[in-house]
Simulated assay, not measured.
Amino acid sequence: MVERTAMEQVEQQQSAPAERRSGKRHSAVLLLGKLCGDVPGVCLVHNISEHGLMARFVDVPAVGDSVCVEVRGLAPARGTVRWVRGQKAGIQFDSSQPYERIFSTENEDGTIPRPPRFAVTLGADVRLGDCKFAAEMIDISAGGAKLTAVEGVQAGQAGHITVRPMGTAIFGTICWVKGGRFGFRFVSPLPIDTLATIIARR
């Protein structure tokens, strides 16, 4: 989860009355959201209820647009953009959503909820200590990525990956290795603009 800045907290407090419908309680959060569709996008959800959400977008939708948003713990939910102000927009869900699941530590099937991931096919240069090799990035989220592995890669190794062709270097640690692939957990979550740029190159 990305930490809120003091300015974002103030903005949320100042704008809350205009963004909330009477009788509908929202939970203040800061979650990565995935815009589903032919061209996936990214947003940062600031608050959410069973009826809708408010988020900050990189590519801002227009009032009246139909969108589908996925967040941690919830299946993709379709809704309609009801208002836009700067980079922020309010979305009303087409049907009520069990939004309390975003706070759960375990899904109904026993798996652990995780932020939405974005499928990509990008080259990456990996450096783990003195070991350097080229890999393919298979998917990415704000907190980590999945890449192809080479022989000898082990969980616990620290280093960085450089995403081509942007040259974006991301530091982190290998958290698992399996079936010729490995998971790379970032030291700190990617800024939403950086993540959006990488996804756009997919």
Rank of each mutant, 00 (worst) to 15 (best):
A6C: 03
R127Q: 15
D94G: 11
I48N: 01
T5R: 15
I48V: 11
R185W: 09
V58I: 15
G159T: 03
E19Q: 11
V150P: 03
T105D: 12
G33W: 00
I174S: 01
I102C: 03
I174L: 04
M7Q: 13
G183D: 02
D94S: 11
A6S: 11
M166E: 07
A16M: 06
T162V: 08
P116S: 08
F171G: 06
A145E: 00
R201V: 08
D65R: 06
I198H: 00
V150D: 05
A28F: 13
V81P: 02
D109S: 09
I140P: 00
D130H: 11
C68M: 11
T197H: 09
S49V: 05
Q92V: 13
R164N: 12
L31W: 01
S22E: 07
R82N: 05
L53F: 03
R202G: 12
M166K: 08
A200E: 11
K24I: 14
T197M: 14
E19F: 14
S104A: 14
R117K: 12
G152V: 08
L122T: 01
Q9M: 15
I199A: 00
E106G: 04
G129R: 06
C43Q: 02
G179W: 07
G73L: 02
S104L: 12
D139I: 01
S66G: 10
R85S: 15
V187R: 12
R185N: 12
V67T: 01
R21F: 07
L35C: 08
I48T: 03
G129L: 04
F171H: 12
V29P: 05
H51P: 04
R185V: 13
R82H: 06
C68D: 08
M1E: 13
G86R: 12
E8Q: 14
R82G: 03
A134R: 13
P189D: 01
Q13C: 04
I199S: 00
L147I: 04
H46M: 11
E106P: 06
Q157A: 12
V39D: 12
W176N: 08
D94N: 13
V163I: 15
L44F: 10
A158V: 15
A200C: 09
I192Y: 07
L30P: 01
T173D: 06
P116N: 07
